[in-house]
Design a protein around this nucleic acid. Structure first.
Length: 434
RNA sequence: UCCCCGGUAGCUCAAUUGGUAGAGUGGGUGGCUGUUAACCACUAGGUUGCUGGUUCGAGUCCAGCCCGGGGAGCCA
């Protein structure tokens, strides 16, 4: 009679009985008369033990030759054993080879370089560290959807093709297809969320965004994922409160449910456990003072560079919210501060540990005449924004929101150096394969 | 786009002042009944990124190009 097929994550439910696992050989440690087969199946890793006396000679020989990443179906008796990784092991009675994997390029030992690993990204995903990162990414995404679902936000998808820019036009990918006018890959779903929040009150979008920036740093991808909530009747304080609750919720969820993955990544948990409210709210003016005290030569009015952000974030053990930047360095749709028209009601959230900005947002301009002036000031084609101006023509209300970069958030939580490891198949300047 | 660093075995790296190209790992073969990136022995494996130059002689020095890494600007 066939044994039940189970996953490694559920082995504990089957102690004492025979089960079948379907997966891949992660590693093999062979002795003279027994083999230790480390098998992974996507839900975890488990050790199978093959004793020469318990199996046929052919099967024992097969196990002696199994290469790393061979696909295998194995059957054996589950028992708890402290010596086994994961706490359970299988005394194997059958090993079926599905396909071999001679010459598998990624070795367990001997570190590989980033170029080699990225070229083999489709295989690199199978390694322990990458498995942990992708599972944490998955948890972050699920936590995001749960957070907004519980708060009665409606998930509204924004288009990928857009007729005009939200940010600078130099960073747009042009698409040559639509007959009437040029189209571009989206840089942000925000403008569409502004329209949607006037319909549903509280909305968010979650999708890919594209930036044709010639950026070559550990914080940049050409294609990255962003979640963008937008809330009607929200002011800047509401936006900051939402951002704080949101980031805390994500970190807490990963700490609760992904301990094993964080352990695989050797993440310093105390850094994540420190992520609790309240986050410091620092005005742009105060941030400039921090920089000056640190000896930076910084002039009021400019935007912060990456080294500036790092200096400011190092003054705190949790994300820092910097608000009210000079309007001149921010996008056209920002609402001006009623107390100082030179400043915008915006907020950036800077993550600790040098990851940089994970959130950018603020309160939006809700007055028609003001917004028309800003569009002209920025030299943008007004006709492309008529629909956006309509939002201010009929039933305009104060509203605001922000965008959170998924890969930077995942990189920060995982404690990894580069965002390229925080997305399954990174797209970067000079890299589109695989 | 600019600045800095690099390109040597499948992979990660070493090679003294310009003088016969080396190790680990992975592959192969053999050994081992409790391994935790197992270990031990043996073994195969090279047009030193490309093109040109200097030199008796270039992995090493020079020029140009290609590719990669890190950073800046810009941004999430």
């Amino acid at each position: 009679m066939a044994t039940p097929v189970v996953t490694i994550s559920k082995l504990g439910d089957h102690v004492g009985s025979d089960v079948t696992l379907r997966g891949w050989l992660y590693n093999r440690r062979s002795k003279g008369k027994l083999h230790f087969l480390i098998i992974r199946d996507g839900t975890g890793m488990a050790q199978g033990v093959v004793f020469k006396k318990n199996v046929s000679e052919e099967m024992f020989e097969l196990c002696d030759k199994l290469p790393q990443e061979a696909s295998v179906i194995v059957t054996g008796t589950v028992k708890a054993d402290e010596r086994a990784p994961g706490g359970y092991e299988l005394g194997l009675s059958e090993v079926e080879l599905v396909q071999g994997a001679e010459g598998y390029p990624i070795a367990l030992q001997s570190g590989h370089g980033p170029d080699f690993l990225l070229t083999h990204r489709h295989l690199w995903l199978r390694s322990k560290r990458q498995l942990a990162i992708m599972r944490i990414r998955h948890e972050v995404i699920q936590a995001i959807h749960d957070f907004y679902y519980e708060r009665e936000f409606i998930h509204v998808d924004a288009p990928i093709f857009t007729p005009a820019a939200c940010e600078g036009t130099t960073t747009l990918f042009e698409v040559d297809y639509f007959e009437d006018e040029k189209a571009y890959l989206t840089q942000s779903g925000q403008l569409y969320m502004e329209a949607a929040c006037m319909a549903h009150g509280k909305v968010y979008c979650f999708g890919p965004t594209f930036r044709a920036e010639k950026s070559k740093t550990r914080r940049h991808l050409t294609e990255f994922w962003m979640v963008e909530p937008e809330v009607a009747y929200a002011d800047l304080d509401d936006v900051m409160q939402l951002a704080e609750d949101f980031v805390c919720h994500i970190v807490k969820r990963v700490l609760e449910r992904r301990q094993a993955e964080l352990a695989d990544l050797e993440r310093d948990l105390s850094k994540l456990e420190a992520i609790v409210p309240p986050f410091p709210r620092v005005s742009y003016d105060e941030a400039v003072e921090i920089l000056k005290k640190a000896g930076r030569d910084f002039e009021w009015g400019g935007d912060f560079g990456a080294p500036d952000e790092t200096i400011i974030s190092e003054a705190y053990d949790r994300p820092v919210m910097i608000h009210r930047y000079p309007a001149a360095v921010k996008a056209f749709y920002m609402k001006a501060d009623p107390e100082d028209a030179k400043k915008a009601l915006c907020v950036d959230v800077i993550a600790p540990e040098g990851v940089g900005e994970i959130i950018g947002g603020g309160q939006r301009a809700d007055d028609l005449a003001y917004l028309e002036g800003k569009i002209e000031e920025h030299g943008l084609p007004k006709e492309s924004f008529e629909w956006f101006l309509d939002i201010r023509r009929w039933g305009s209300v104060p509203h605001g929101g922000f965008g959170l970069g998924i890969e930077r958030t995942v990189a920060w939580i995982c404690g990894i150096e580069h965002v390229r490891e925080a997305i399954p198949f990174p797209r970067m300047l000079y890299r589109i394969y695989p």
